[in-house]
Write a protein that binds this DNA or RNA. Structure first.
Length: 220
DNA sequence: AAAGTCGTCAACCGCCGTGGA
DNA sequence: TTCCACGGCGGTTGACGACTT
């Protein structure tokens, strides 16, 4: 393994600590649990191994199919892919991809998708540059994307939990990274929400968007 | 049976974005 | 505005078992 393996006792201590104090505050976990591990190790161990409802064992053909489709769309965004596969961790999916699927994809003559290149439909999120000075308030901001020498302007909305920006562009289309969406999003609602000083709720917007995304993925 | 090679996967590393001081 | 601590992510490593020669 890439490091020092966790003992049963360490697992027990970590589990007990999380049960008592809850998830989060990882910097305090080693101390609270009495573990000689760093916060990152504790978090990783919990997320990838100890967390309840983690599905073990081999991937079903349906799961493999979904991974292939999602990877084709999203590239190496394992956490997002894992989010669409209940019980599977990003690390498991990443390992499975590296061991089984990446070779398979290459053997079939399909260019290996790569989140850092153009392989995935989404590609790498563009480097968004603010059109205006960013305010400290995290609301819809105007951005310009000039990574391909083509300027497109829009309003960036970024999801914190999934780290995926999407843009409501001035020509009333919507994009996520390099991908042009083939379904209509309720842009007016987005814009209205962004204009709404107090009623703004990114999470709801994002959930709506994810639902649309699910439908779109199912139709692939 | 021994040595070498390969596949798997848990764990670590380094980077990035965010939020608070 | 800057700095820093933190959480989170993807890439990589390396131990170990399985398989092959």
């Amino acid at each position: 393994m890439g490091g020092i393996a966790w003992t049963e006792e360490e697992d027990y201590l970590l589990k007990k600590c999380i049960e008592q104090y809850g998830e989060g505050k990882w910097h305090r976990v080693p101390q609270l649990a009495g573990l000689n591990r760093c916060r990152k190790s504790c978090r990783l161990r919990w997320l990838n191994y100890l967390r309840p409802n983690i599905k073990r064992g081999s991937f079903t053909p349906q799961e493999v199919d979904l991974i292939l489709n999602l990877h084709n769309i999203l590239g190496n965004r394992w956490s997002i892919i894992a989010g669409r596969l209940p019980g599977r961790t990003a690390n498991d999916i990443k390992n499975y991809w590296n061991c089984h699927l990446s070779k398979k994809v290459c053997d079939q003559g399909v260019e290996k998708p790569n989140s850092t290149k153009e392989g995935a439909i989404f590609g790498k999120p563009p480097k968004w540059k603010p059109l205006q000075e960013e305010s400290s308030k995290s609301k819809g901001k105007e951005y310009v994307d000039d990574q391909n020498g083509e300027i497109s302007q829009g309003i960036l909305v970024q999801n914190q939990s999934q780290n995926l920006p999407f843009v409501v562009e001035q020509n009333n289309s919507m994009s996520l990274g390099n991908m042009a969406m083939d379904f209509q999003f309720d842009q007016q609602a987005v814009v209205k929400a962004m204009e709404d000083e107090d009623g703004y709720n990114k999470r709801e917007l994002w959930d709506d968007w994810v639902s649309e995304m699910d439908l779109w993925i199912d139709s692939l």
